[in-house]
Design a protein around this nucleic acid. Structure first.
Lengths: 176, 176
DNA sequence: TTGATTCGATGACGATTGTCATCTAATAAT
DNA sequence: ATTATTAGATGACAATCGTCATCGAATCAA
């Protein structure tokens, strides 16, 4: 087992990647620190060398997701309609662990500590600003809210036909 | 302490009311069974007389909220715009414990067991059907998604001005 | 009135989980 | 080369929490 400084950075990245995926898939409280570490190929004991608490891991993992999405956006932002059509695809609904963090964790994040909320608020702002480049600010806000809400509702729905109707209905509503 | 049959029904109702409020305020995993019972004026030991598990309480509490909202709707449904204007008020944002269960618990409910998801799916359907009485089905789906998403995002935002902008922007987007 | 039920209280148990102490081995510093 | 650091493993601890056992007291059936 390598113990170099470079290896530590790689471990940290692996932990953040595992955390970001698992938290979105199962919720923050649905995943233990030990599970995250195991998923990253480590054991639970090494955790304190990287993060001082689980909450810090949550904040850092979300920040990493947002940074990655800023550096290399997954969805096209040519226009609001193009973005919405991509966001509202069934593939996104199924890939919870790699999809929008707000749709996956939104209602839990409402109760996150201040430091985490600050990171989240900045990302909401960034996302709206990005979309507002090709349309009005009100459209950007309303449409993105619709996407996030629709994705969440489509995931709650227990049958595919109705879930699809939510996604497609919202897509049509947004002219996408 | 009364132990009559009537009193048991009253206790059950008190437990459901407390649960529905506390779960929405703090999340399902953020509230213990003991806290719900205490809030209802009882101790934790009486819980099994009413519900066989915490998960059953979650399902029943949500079902009760939906039933109550169907019997005596809180928000006006005269038109989609009127409903949206009422839904997106700051008072709703602040009253998490008495507000929309989807905005308060949505992302946690995605991972709820089948039985709970069935109840939730039925309520989503009912809500959309209700709104679709005064507009197109696509409008009903897209607009309601926008309301739920906007309320969640507005609650995540850590400053009131931006939170208000999300609510008002969505309101304007929906023509409300 | 008497006996059977059962609501709700007290108390405890077992499982889970975040965090920390300690040990080891490999790396970095001198 | 020798020493000091430190990433990461093993193991344990304390706290939390869902659930159940048991008991007392009040109600309902007879």
């Amino acid at each position: 087992m390598a113990k170099s400084r470079q290896h530590k950075a790689e471990s940290r990245k692996a932990i953040l990647d595992s955390a970001a995926r698992l938290f979105r898939e199962r919720g923050v409280e649905g995943v233990t620190v030990a599970e995250v570490m195991q998923d990253a190929g480590l054991t639970h004991g090494g955790f304190p060398r990287h993060f001082s608490s689980k909450q810090e891991l949550v904040t850092e993992a979300l920040a990493a997701v947002f940074q990655a999405n800023q550096d290399a956006p997954i969805l096209p932002t040519d226009s609001l309609q193009v973005f919405a059509a991509a966001y509202l695809r069934p593939q996104h609904r199924e890939a919870v662990g790699r999809g929008c963090a707000f749709a996956a964790l939104g209602s839990e994040l409402v109760r996150a500590p201040d430091h985490t909320r600050a990171t989240l608020t900045a990302e909401i702002r960034r996302q709206i600003d990005e979309l507002a480049k090709t349309t009005s600010r009100e459209q950007a806000i309303g449409a993105w809210s619709a996407m996030v809400g629709a994705m969440m509702l489509a995931r709650i729905a227990d049958n595919e036909a109705f879930s699809d109707e939510i996604l497609n209905g919202t897509k049509a509503f947004l002219g996408a």
